[in-house]
Design a protein around this nucleic acid. Structure first.
Lengths: 337, 337
DNA sequence: TTGAAAGCGATACCAT
DNA sequence: ATGGTATCGCTTTCAA
């Protein structure tokens, strides 16, 4: 068992105190220790392959240099991609990231936060699940730095990095209207989350803005708990009825994947039988026979800004909050014709 | 600023010593403290919402209850899915997982390992990049528990959870041969990694096993560093030549995604013009017009076993090593006809 | 310029 | 059944 090298070991070998070694190794050139001693210590440290015990440092400093990332599901490509960006950005600042998946579940989210708070993460980046307002407020009360991503609660004053959801679906719907569709279905989640409501509002306003009326039965909300079956049923309702829609706007990646499969199952063709716009550019869509028009989210900016804001908040707890709303881009392709 | 509650605070309120509080809170019923005092302490702890400082515990115990996960890229669906499984499994045992992406790069991998070792992770789960043998040996030497997944180095005695790569491609190739193909192309990575060599060997032996000869120019190895261009070029070589192949076996998920796109770009149809078998069932493939025959990896077993073996190794450092080879399944669909 | 020693917040040995 | 205190490895104040 290769013995762990401690400051003490180096001190002994160098015939100096532990304090001196600590100075040399942790401060820069302004350690206040003479160059001669400094060099000697550095050489010994290197020779012994000294690795500071980060845990001890953390206990002393009260900082773990770790950030907790909580998303709905780390295996969802949207979150997996953001995770990768956050990881890279965090590492640049010598931060480590630990992650947890809430599965959009309030209790899991709460357990996860507690778990990571106990582990003394310095802060959180969270894509909050529904009904987690109290958890978020609790973090605020405990003065634990965090920034919300993808979603946020307008009634709670927090840092967040989100997109302009209203404009995203407004533009998408407008595009479908411009293509001549006036019976447009919307597939959304049954959710109280603000971003979802905003996406629905964007859809509505685009239609009303054109002097048309919105039909509530064109707006379908599926339950996260029964995803696939529910999507299938709702897509059927939209497409197989007396007044079928001629276009569908899917408000998330996952909804689109399953919803498109259902369209296929119904033997309908995009865009001949039904036009479509989806959210995000999942790799899955690359193989779809019809190039899909989609709402492109600025993942890189979301991830990078989230880290920057969080680290800033950790360094300056009293710094004012950052509320960042980024714009999406509608990438026009054939499915929305 | 809500003050952090310490054992000391509880002790003061309960008029007992810090030690007593510690006993009550950390041991179970066998704390040796009288029920009356125990109850009082527990009540106060709950009332104050006491959260033990995990960092302090870690320093004392020498255990961080954290495992480091190192993969090529956390945003790759194969690894993202495994990450999720590992996360769930780890949490069951009260472990936290921190992750890092090596990008198949030796130096990044090394930096990452150092970074996480300093943070005192209790062990690693690693999908090792090429040429990282020394890093792995170094972990062994330092007696840091770890288990390799997906790939491993046969010349180094370690824990690992991998698949039977030889059989996977052997069966896949056999299937193509049975469908009447005798000019079968293979797209692999240019890599010294054992799993890649085994996949190539499986392909070769299936062909030779049928009394046919293998053609080296049917075996294409692409560079990770120049992925897309290289795949395109190699697919072209296989399909647009004097003796084109009639089938292609892609040895990874990513290779398949780009390789299939290239086939599309060449206006060739699967399986009419060229048959195909791919590795893994990426969500992306769901939208491919032709149902793809694929090698199915037991992700759940890989992830769960990796965690189990690692935690066992952490608990019993002298326990013998576990070398686990799992079988894949060839899921037959239309692309291999 | 250097070092002794007091923490950081828990745990656990050894007394009592 | 309790509690005093050394300890985990490092940082930092204060003195020398």
């Amino acid at each position: 068992m290769a013995k762990k090298i401690l400051l003490k070991d180096i001190a002994k070998k160098a015939n100096v105190s532990v304090a001196t070694v600590s100075y040399v190794l942790s401060k820069g050139s302004d350690s206040g220790i003479s160059p001669k001693v400094s060099e000697k210590i550095k050489k010994i440290a290197k020779a012994l392959n000294y690795r500071p015990n980060q845990i001890a440092k953390s206990l002393q400093s009260g900082k773990s240099y770790t950030i907790g990332l909580i998303v709905a599901d780390i295996s969802n490509p949207f979150f997996a991609n953001i995770a990768r960006i956050i990881e890279d950005e965090a590492k640049k600042h010598n931060y480590t990231v630990v992650f947890g998946s809430s599965d959009e579940n309030e209790t899991k989210s709460s357990d996860l936060i507690t778990f990571l708070v106990n582990r003394q993460v310095d802060g959180f980046i969270i894509a909050p699940a529904e009904n987690t307002q109290e958890q978020i407020k609790s973090l605020k009360k405990q003065n634990i730095p965090f920034v919300l991503i993808d979603r946020y609660f307008p009634e709670i004053d927090t840092n967040y990095v989100a997109i302009n959801n209203h404009k995203a679906t407004f533009d998408a719907t407008k595009k479908l209207l411009a293509s001549g569709h006036n019976a447009i279905g919307l597939i959304a989640y049954e959710s109280e989350l603000h971003h979802m409501k905003e996406r629905i509002r964007g859809y509505r306003e685009a239609i009303e803005n054109k002097g048309l009326e919105t039909h509530d039965n064109y707006i379908k909300k599926v339950k996260f708990s029964n995803l696939v079956d529910d999507i299938n049923a709702k897509v059927d309702e939209l497409l197989i009825s007396e007044n079928p829609v001629s276009a569908i706007l899917y408000t998330t990646n996952t909804l689109a994947i399953h919803g498109l499969k259902r369209i296929d199952a119904l033997k309908l063709k995009v865009p001949k039988d039904v036009s479509v716009i989806v959210f995000d550019a999942a790799e899955a869509f690359d193989f779809y026979y019809c190039p899909l028009t989609y709402v492109k989210q600025p993942l890189m900016e979301i991830g990078k800004n989230a880290v920057t804001i969080l680290l800033d908040q950790i360094a300056n707890p009293n710094h004012e909050l950052s509320k960042m709303t980024l714009e999406t881009t509608l990438v026009n392709r054939e499915s929305s014709n």
